[in-house]
Amino acid sequence: MEDTLTEAPGTAADTTKITVRGLQVYYAGTHAVRDVDVDIPAKAVTALIGPSGCGKSTFLRCLNRMNDTIPDARVTGEICIDGEEIHDARVDPVQLRAKVGMVFQKPNPFPKSIRDNVAYGPKIHGLTRTRAELNEVVEKSLRRAALWDEVKDRLDAPGTGLSGGQQQRLCIARAIATAPEILLMDEPCSALDPIATAQIEELIDELRNRFAVVIVTHSMQQAARVSQRTAFFHLGRMVEYGDTGELFTNPADPRTESYITGRIG
């Protein structure tokens, strides 16, 4: 846990964390993602926007090899995290997913206590040696997910009893607890009300100090608020990728312009 928290001072936001080259994804008969090349920076929030079915969630699920769990999905091309190809036979997808955490669209706390939800990852990966150490990880993760003050008196209550926004922050705490380097978020606010959304967005901004965050969102305002880099997907292709401010004020591609001004999608 500790080693990922103390980063060398030299790592700036422009260091590349993930390099993707020539990525193709096929689902039974459909070509869901085509020729995607992208460099995702460390310590920044990268937003993926685009209309429904454009392949942005599929792309996101490639980054922690979650598509492996779908029987008829096929992924080709190159994805390197810190220069290491994640499809290499030496890479264990199970270990990879501990390093690349994921938060889903709908809050999905396990039917366990709040403590056990957060402790789940550290326990299965054997990250802690003593009970005290585990409790420390739980507290630290919950604090970092801005949930500690609300749940510290009821850690043994079921996680499913929290409100929607709290559940989503619990899921973020659960993902942080395995000490990942990258955090993937698949429309994390789409099931939440505006207040809970604002809390999560604030949290995402905090998280960028420690993790590379990749977030899929349907809300362009959200992309503009939380991200530094934005990629626009359309019909399985990545149409445009650049600085968020630049992409929203001065899009290079006419399709991006149509989408952000509301004419397609």
Binding site: V94, R97, M102, K112, R174
Partner: peptide, 27 residues
Amino acid sequence: VPQSLRDGSLGLGATRSETIRQVVVPA
């Protein structure tokens, strides 16, 4: 048992049997 629970567990780096033992069967 909702698929989202399985995804959540697999996404944390649990193997399939860990997912079944600790999430699916308790649910």
